[in-house]
């Protein structure tokens, strides 16, 4: 059985990821199209919220991805710090802008949904506030990557920032909860069937979530491969200059 660490080799990673890329990309498109169309047009309106509830099929997956992408960055940062695999650091770098965009989508769809429901685009609700803070963390992380010229130094510094940032993001989540009890409903989806939304909403939501995950994987593969190529060409140029 081949070890997973074989994919730490950039060349191996690029070959394998480019083979699976078309499948993932098609999977993402199909899941997104099916999930969203099913959710938008073939589910009943909510008895209180009407059709506005359907933004849920974008809002919930993007919000989940916003958090999951940060967790993925945390893991890849740890892999970089412990095992020094360049692909890992570059994957974290590649994922950050996607995470930031997901956070923005979650905030935007939340505002659009909140306007008819709560009568306001924005409230300093714990969940909303936490997402805004998460967005700031993404911004800081990307800015640090962009500010440092040496790639290894940047990878090291951003990894430590990601670690420390995760602790503080979690702490902020609790602090914000403590600070203000909010308008936002509890988690909409959970594995515990008792609290879950009805099946008619649940299945299209699952498909949409799968679509968002696959979309992320597609984008992160493309971006990581771009980063690898850029990194390699920079290294080659630097060597040429020196010899």
């Amino acid at each position: 059985m081949a070890s997973i660490w074989e994919y730490a080799n950039p060349l191996k990673f690029m070959r394998t990821s480019e083979t699976i890329l078309p499948f993932v990309a098609w999977g993402a498109s199909i899941c997104l199209v099916v999930g969203l169309i099913w959710g938008f047009f073939f589910t009943p309106d909510d008895f209180r919220q009407g059709s506005t509830v359907k933004i849920f099929y974008i809002h919930v997956p993007s919000a989940m991805m916003a958090i999951n992408i940060w967790v993925m960055m945390l893991i890849t940062s740890l892999v970089w710090i412990i095992r020094r695999h360049h692909v890992s650091a570059l994957a974290a770098r590649a994922a950050a802008p996607i995470g930031a965009v997901m956070t923005l989508i979650a905030l935007y769809t939340g505002a659009v949904w909140g306007q008819p429901m709560w009568g306001t685009w924005w409230a300093w609700d714990p969940r909303l506030t936490s997402f805004l803070i998460l967005f700031l963390f993404y911004l800081g992380y990307m800015a640090l990557w962009a500010a440092i010229e040496n790639d290894d130094t940047a990878a090291d510094l951003t990894s430590v920032l990601c670690l420390v940032g995760s602790v503080f993001a979690l702490l902020s989540r609790y602090a914000v909860n403590f600070w203000n009890q909010g308008l936002h409903q509890g988690a909409s989806l959970s594995l515990d069937k008792q609290e879950n939304v009805a099946d008619v909403f649940w299945y299209p939501a699952l498909v949409a979530i799968a679509g968002f995950v696959l979309l992320f994987v597609t984008l992160v593969i493309i971006r990581t491969n771009t980063e690898i190529r850029a990194r390699r060409s920079r290294a080659l140029l630097a060597r040429e200059r020196m010899s």
Partner: peptide
């Protein structure tokens, strides 16, 4: 002066 053969090992460029 360091001389490494890039053609042999892709990872070297990193």
């Amino acid at each position: 002066k360091a001389t490494s053969n890039l053609a042999e090992n892709f990872d070297e460029a990193f």
